[in-house]
């Protein structure tokens, strides 16, 4: 019991770290820092999944954790970094408008997410049930990150972070999704990053920039 209590506290800490990282992603201007933050988010996800696996004694979750480590901490950040270097976008900073306003909106979203998670966490029987609200908040904050960004790479990272939130929500509510689905999602992510990488090159080829406002000219008159 004592062990479990300690684990729960640790999990709460990790979840708080995750939320903090989401806020950091919302406000950072540099793309490389965004990737680093994404990597840390992945690391936290790995740690918390491994902890749950240890506590609940589920071998499946160990696999899940290993997958997270491989994909989200090692592979994807590496690919993204490589892409950024190839595209020569290391130094490209974004001009983000109204960072304080965005942070305030983020705060409101967190409150909404906690309100929404209340009935779900009552139903859930897992040791992580208190963190469902945080998981939802991470999803919404990542979505907000996507909306506020104009660079293609930043949007993709927002998308990946959203998936992290979903994974976290699944782990908190029901000890993770079935293995098959998780494997499928992992593969999807990898493929998505590859395809989006190709798109980056295409977009830059066409517009000499990765700024998405150039795409606005593509609409039908």
């Amino acid at each position: 019991m004592l062990k479990s209590h300690f684990v729960i506290e640790l999990l709460k800490l990790l979840a708080a770290g995750m939320l903090l990282i989401s806020f950091a992603m919302l406000s950072t201007r540099r793309i490389q820092r965004l990737i680093t933050l994404y990597m840390w988010q992945g690391a936290i996800l790995f740690l918390s999944t491994a902890l749950v696996a240890y506590d609940a004694g589920l071998t499946e979750l160990y696999f899940s954790a290993a997958l997270t480590l491989l994909l989200k901490v090692i592979a994807l950040p590496f690919i993204l970094n490589w892409l950024v270097r190839r595209l020569g976008a290391q130094r490209e900073n974004e001009r983000l408008a109204h960072i304080p306003a965005t942070m305030l909106a983020g705060l409101l979203l967190v409150i909404l997410a906690f309100g929404l998670a209340q009935p779900i966490s009552v139903l859930a029987a897992t040791i992580m049930r208190h963190t469902i609200g945080i998981a939802l908040a991470v999803i919404l904050l990542s979505f907000l990150t996507m909306i506020m960004r104009r660079k293609a790479i930043a949007q993709v990272i927002g998308f990946l972070a959203m998936e992290n939130g979903l994974f976290f929500a699944a782990a908190s509510a029901t000890y993770g999704m079935p293995m098959v689905i998780e494997l499928g999602i992992a593969l999807d992510l990898l493929v998505a990053v590859f395809i989006l990488g190709i798109f980056f090159f295409q977009i830059r080829e066409q517009f000499d920039s990765l700024d998405l406002h150039h795409l606005e000219s593509l609409k039908e008159e």
Binding site: L140, I147, Q155, L212, L215, S217, L218
Partner: peptide, 13 residues
């Protein structure tokens, strides 16, 4: 259909 990606994302959000 403004062509702005952020706006489309906002709709789904």
């Amino acid at each position: 259909q403004s062509g702005r990606l952020a706006l489309y994302l906002l709709f789904s959000f």
